[in-house]
Nucleic acid binder design. Structure first.
Lengths: 214, 214
DNA sequence: GTCTATAACTTGATAGAC
DNA sequence: GTCTATCAAGTTATAGAC
């Protein structure tokens, strides 16, 4: 279980730096120095910095989205045409990424959260494509579980869910810093709290539109 | 209403580039070219790039947090010792930043959302300080409105609220792109939907801890 | 596959004339 | 206050020896 190959060492070092400092702020020199490999190895193994960035993100996104779809498949098979409980859907979506909140995988969490903020131009396009199927399948499943919501309301609330998830992936450790009271939040408490929060939010009655017309 | 001074033109150009491309990816040359001013003007008026970044962020954060505190003050005076409705508290927190979702101020929204993702080191420290009072006051008010939640649950759920807010500030325009159905989301529909979602999420019963022990 | 050396370029910052 | 010119240091990328 020791001595990973050069390609993996570069990916690990890049992930760590991208996650903590950001992609733009991480130079190939820092990455290769941290990985203990030669500067030229990046271009040999990946082609360019952009391709390294893409590979680093894809390494984490792929398994998470695959598990989301597997869980959704399993739920739909088990439901056998009947309705799926909202909490189950939400858990199928959230749990695969929330696993990264365990202390030894916080870097993966931060990287995953940064996907949506750091990517630009074609990188953005390529990464967005990785989420297409997940978005399509879960939007469909959620709209069946929440037939009272119109399409705009549903998408907006799904958006809130994603926002809560991403911010938790990137900033959960900071929560303990910012807290007025010293406090420890157990990693395995986060997912159930988040499922409860999001499911209740998704189910909330549609607000009266004339009420907030200011 | 024409010809702002050099300092303002730099801030406007910097805001636009920081919001769209990010801080690290925006060079002083791009900023000054876009502002139509000389490269050396940045160092003359702001001292350094870091100080420009700080000024650009502070210009948007200040008024938003001031309004949050004013609204909370007003609610507490009106309540006169009695309980404040949860929806009112949530609106006092969210409304000041959500105002930036109007079409002509999307850049301000994106910049505000980036505060929490781009800042590093001392910049991070300085900007975090800008939020201290808001966090302290709203945590107090929310815990009085939600006496059933323990401190860890409350902070975690407040964290989810902040995540939903930030992601909406930065990515609302992308929601319309990603939507499986073509769709238009009116900017003034977002705030009431978000208040309903967040208030319901905050009020959700605390989940049974043994249930999700996997 | 790994290394050194270097090319070609961009970056933030400043000295000094106007 | 605004400009030009320039510096020193950093960047990605690559050619070519081993």
């Amino acid at each position: 279980m020791e001595a990973p190959d050069t390609k993996t060492r570069i990916l690990d070092a890049a992930e760590s730096l991208f996650a903590t400092r950001g992609v733009e702020a991480s130079s190939l020199r820092e990455i290769t120095a941290s990985a203990g490999v030669n500067l030229a190895a990046v271009n040999y193994h990946f082609g360019s910095k952009d391709d390294l960035v893409l590979a680093a993100f894809r390494r984490r996104i792929g398994p998470v989205n695959r598990e989301r779809l597997e869980r959704l498949d399993a739920l739909e098979v088990a439901a056998n045409g009947r309705a799926i409980a909202l909490e189950e859907l939400v858990e199928a979506f959230l749990a695969p990424s929330m696993r990264f909140l365990s202390p030894d995988r916080r870097l993966h969490a931060r990287l995953l959260g940064r996907v949506h903020h750091e990517a630009q131009d074609e990188l953005q396009t390529k990464l967005t494509h990785e989420f297409e199927q997940v978005v399509h399948r879960f939007v469909g499943a959620l709209s069946r579980a929440l037939p009272r919501l119109g399409p705009a309301e549903l998408l907006l609330r799904g958006h809130f869910m994603v926002g809560a998830m991403i911010y938790t992936l990137t900033h959960l450790d900071k929560l303990e810093t910012v807290a007025p009271v010293p406090l420890h939040i157990a990693a395995d408490q986060v997912l159930p709290q988040m499922i409860a929060f999001v499911a209740a939010g998704l189910r909330a009655p549609v607000p009266d539109r004339t009420e907030v017309g200011r």
